[in-house]
Design a protein around this nucleic acid. Sequence first.
DNA 1: GTAAGATATGGACCGCTGGTCCATTTGTGT
DNA 2: ACACAAATGGACCAGCGGTCCATATCTTAC
Lengths: 197, 197
Amino acid sequence: MAERADAVRNRAAVLSAAEALFQREDLDHVSLARIAEAAGVGKATVVRRFGDLLGLVGALIAPRVTALQDRVRSGEPPLGPGGDPVVRLHVYLDALFDFVLENRRLIRALEQYGPYAYYANPASQFWIDELADRIHAARPTVDAGYLAHAVFTALRADVVDYLREHRHMDTDRIRAGVHALADPPDPTPGPPLPGRS
Amino acid sequence: MAERADAVRNRAAVLSAAEALFQREDLDHVSLARIAEAAGVGKATVVRRFGDLLGLVGALIAPRVTALQDRVRSGEPPLGPGGDPVVRLHVYLDALFDFVLENRRLIRALEQYGPYAYYANPASQFWIDELADRIHAARPTVDAGYLAHAVFTALRADVVDYLREHRHMDTDRIRAGVHALADPPDPTPGPPLPGRS
DNA sequence: GTAAGATATGGACCGCTGGTCCATTTGTGT
DNA sequence: ACACAAATGGACCAGCGGTCCATATCTTAC
């Protein structure tokens, strides 16, 4: 039997209310009860639909995750299949970084939930595996498995937010740093490169 | 007036009980109430002495932090002042990595407490600043400020634990990865390595 | 030895959390 | 219109971090 109409309505109301709260409110003041209240439903309804807060956040980001996954898996090169390995790596890093910036609050809610909740998330697994593949293709001599995790960790929303808000690093600087992590520019053996101070 | 004798006794009991709980128990089952009970004191006593769980963890690791800080600030080179910059960087990374391994549970308790609690910790600030200095000395052309944060993030206890427990990476592999992050080995210039633009 | 006064104590208490339960209401297919 | 499944929501639970204050304990001065 199809899902009942009121259930559909409530699911939508909860998702919409949760989205609004996660964007507007201090992250750890977003609780099941507040979401339920904002959606005009009972707490149990939220829990029954989504299991827990983790499931709710997952449902919220799922469409954006699959959108990016589609572009990566079957979109135009170089983000999609094909093209120069080094370019593919950097394009992918930019896409991931943009994704993190756009979805910081939801990603932070994920990270906050449990110690490994973020990494255990199937989407994260996909990002990391793809990252490892592209690092390996671009730089076959490094430990791509480890480096992928390290770079992905540098892309954690809480880390990026911390660097921006408390260390006053602007987005471009962080972005450049991430690129350099994954694929350091060659050390110039001859002339002393005009270093950034 | 000196601290009362019973206060001294209780402080020691709390520290010892907390240490034991943090080592033996699942981290997020360690609560004020359980520590107080294990120490045989009231909850308020724990709070009054240490402010909150963060302060308690801080008091527990403080001696180990200052021990390492002393070696870094005024110990024998190359961990202490002096010596070759590249060696100094790698020796320092090893010391930090060992410190994380030895104090994983307390560090994770710190990290767990709040989003920025770990970075905001004065000890972390010291480690990061020192790391930035050594990176800059060893590799003057990179953005040492960013890279220091990225490497320090890769040294988070939760990250290291995750890689070991869930990704089955052994300690030496992670250690090597961290060294490569902070100071990547030169790409062999002979063979036709595809340079990034 | 004792009394006065400062210090330390701990359990009741508060508002909150994530999550469960089940009597009741609501929607759906016949 | 009816019967029955599906959905609901608020009371409820155990737990959390943290506060409060009447009481107990220590220390000092005499």
